[in-house]
């Protein structure tokens, strides 16, 4: 029973924070970038599984490496962001499969929130609160930058500084997200609750509120269904999230 509680707490914090961040990523059509970053985290996850340390700790440096690479490629080439992300993402998967122990593959690919420890849960909760407070602080500026960098610059907003903080938050969420839904499904953790919320919201407050809400309850229902069916929790969480999205289409304004 206690294990379920830990999984729930850990998952709710990550799901809610990912939903909140998703509202910013959706507005810049960046939601899918979280996908490649999750994939790129796979070598890090593989290392963590082999040497028995925290998956998120393994993932984080690789995610940061991925963000830096995508950012550098974008400056160096004129290829669209998606193409660059695809290159980075395929390489991540390829490297991971060179040494990922096959019996651990499922955990790496679709996550496993059902085994988190007490220490991990506390650490995750604190980190999520920190990310949320940073996001709340930079939210207006990032929305403005997403709408138009020129307008933000005309407002004397330091675009580079805010983008750096924003990308840092994305990196942290992806690293935490792989714990819940693995390297393959992190994009969904960020993108789906925000999309659901977009269907229902008419102002910025509702937009963040519903994204946080659906981010959290998808995890709750996912874990409950895992208890009932014993199917892997990560995919169940994402499927719940997708189900809420489908329902939101009925109420779409």
């Amino acid at each position: 029973m206690e294990q379920v509680l830990l999984s729930l707490i850990c998952g709710i914090f990550i799901g809610a924070t990912a939903g909140y961040l998703g509202t910013l990523m959706l507005s810049k059509r960046m939601a899918l970038v979280a996908g490649p970053l999750g994939h790129l985290a796979l070598p890090g996850i593989a290392l963590a599984l082999i040497y028995g340390f925290d998956i998120s700790l393994g993932a984080f440096p690789f995610v940061i490496l991925g963000i830096t690479l995508i950012w550098l490629f974008e400056i160096r080439t004129k290829l669209p962001m998606e193409a660059l992300a695809a290159i980075v993402f395929a390489s991540g998967v390829a490297i991971a499969f060179l040494f990922l122990p096959i019996e651990q593959a499922e955990r790496a690919l679709v996550g496993d929130i059902t085994r988190v420890s007490f220490k991990e849960t506390i650490f995750t909760a604190i980190l999520c609160l920190l990310i949320c407070s940073i996001l709340k602080k930079i939210y207006p500026q990032i929305v403005l930058i997403n709408i138009s960098e020129d307008l933000a610059k005309a407002e004397k907003i330091d675009v580079k500084k805010y983008n750096f903080l924003y990308l840092g938050a994305i990196g942290l969420i992806v690293a935490l997200g792989v714990k819940v839904v693995g390297g393959l499904l992190t994009a969904a953790l960020v993108a789906i609750p925000a999309s659901t919320s977009r269907n229902l919201s008419r102002n910025l407050f509702q937009y963040s509120f519903w994204a946080v809400f659906f981010g959290a309850i998808s995890v709750v229902f996912g874990i409950l269904f895992f208890r009932l069916t014993n199917l892997p929790a990560g995919p169940l969480i994402i499927l719940m999230s997708a189900l809420f999205f489908l329902i939101s289409l009925i109420f779409k304004r």
Partner: peptide, 12 residues
């Protein structure tokens, strides 16, 4: 401002 419509936002 083509991207402004991506965000649900009131004038306020």
């Amino acid at each position: 401002l083509p991207f402004i419509k991506n965000v649900p936002m009131t004038i306020e």
